[in-house]
Amino acid sequence: MKLPLVPHGVTVQCAETGSWRTFKPLQKKELCTKCGLCVTFCPDGVIHMTKQGIEIDYQFCKGCGVCAEECPAKAIEMELEQVEE
């Protein structure tokens, strides 16, 4: 019997969405206060807080820009993605 049911539960499977990006969030480390608002508000949950500061997972970041908009310290800037030759 084949059914479209999939056993899962150990790790979450991922399909990369980084290629969707038009604008790329770049952080200015010197301005970051590690408040974590970007981690909370990233719709996709792809910003991680580390001891060194935030880490944006560009394999999945869709470039919506919510992090830059919400950052109270203006520590994230959106930059047009460069096309790879």
């Binding site: 979450v12 499977q13 991922c14 990369e16 969405t17 719709p43 996709d44 949950g45």
Partner: peptide, 23 residues
Amino acid sequence: NLTPREKYAERIVGPGIRACAGC
């Protein structure tokens, strides 16, 4: 091609959701 990511092992909702950007 779907890849499990250890970084997201504790996550209920993983990254790579095909919702629009800024959803």
